[in-house]
């Protein structure tokens, strides 16, 4: 995630401290999931390898790029708000578009799986795949709402005085992006 220029480097916590309760809590739960995934994979590597073969790595990769792009747009928007330059609302709208595109691609992926007769109960691999990509998708949708809120703040005059709100939202969105990158690597690539 690019660091905006002019960011105070000493003792600066991005956003308000409280938002880190949510972020660290989420990181804890997802970390548990990552450990659990590795544990179940160790019990039955063959099923996990077979499951991974059935995933569409291209769609996963496209979604990774979509989220990375959205994170870049958000970082640029934060930078513009801080520098009191115009264009932040449009950048955030672009990031929201990326979020929705991610959801659409995920829906496509799920429906292809279900049409192929693969469901939650197919194997431990698919149970973990469906459960955690869905929980992540819930985060993406919540994040699109957060981006809409940030856009509202950024569109009003004096947005640079509300950096805490902008940064808190951006931090959450970067978390959503980060979690996907780990999920993608773990489920689609390592599986």
């Amino acid at each position: 995630m690019p660091q905006a220029e002019g960011l105070p480097t000493k003792g600066h916590v991005p956003g308000e401290p409280g938002v880190w309760v949510l972020i660290l809590g989420d990181l804890m739960v997802f970390s548990t999931f990552f450990v659990m995934f590795a544990y179940y994979r160790g019990l039955d590597p063959a099923t996990f390898a077979a499951g991974r073969q059935l995933l569409d790595v291209r769609l996963g990769l496209v979604n990774t790029l979509v989220l990375l792009t959205s994170s870049l747009l958000v970082a640029m928007a934060v930078h513009r708000v801080r520098a009191e330059r115009p264009g932040a609302p449009a950048l955030l709208l672009g990031a929201m578009g990326c979020g929705l595109l991610f959801g659409a691609i995920k829906a496509l992926e799920y429906s292809a799986k279900i049409q192929a007769g693969i469901g939650f109960g197919s194997s431990t691999f698919f149970m973990l795949y469906f459960a955690f990509t869905a929980i992540h998708l819930l985060h993406v949708l919540l994040g699109v709402g957060v981006l809409a809120f940030m856009r509202g703040v950024a569109a009003r005059p004096g947005a640079a005085q509300r950096m805490v709100a902008i940064e808190s939202g951006a931090t959450f969105w970067h978390l959503v992006d980060l979690l996907w990158i780990v999920l993608f690597a773990l489920i689609y690539l390592v599986g």
């Binding site: 308000e16 401290p17 409280g18 938002v19 880190w20 309760v21 949510l22 809590g25 989420d26």
Partner: peptide, 10 residues
């Protein structure tokens, strides 16, 4: 306090 808000969302 606000952090309880975030804890509650989580």
């Amino acid at each position: 306090p606000r952090w309880i808000g975030y804890l509650t969302i989580w």
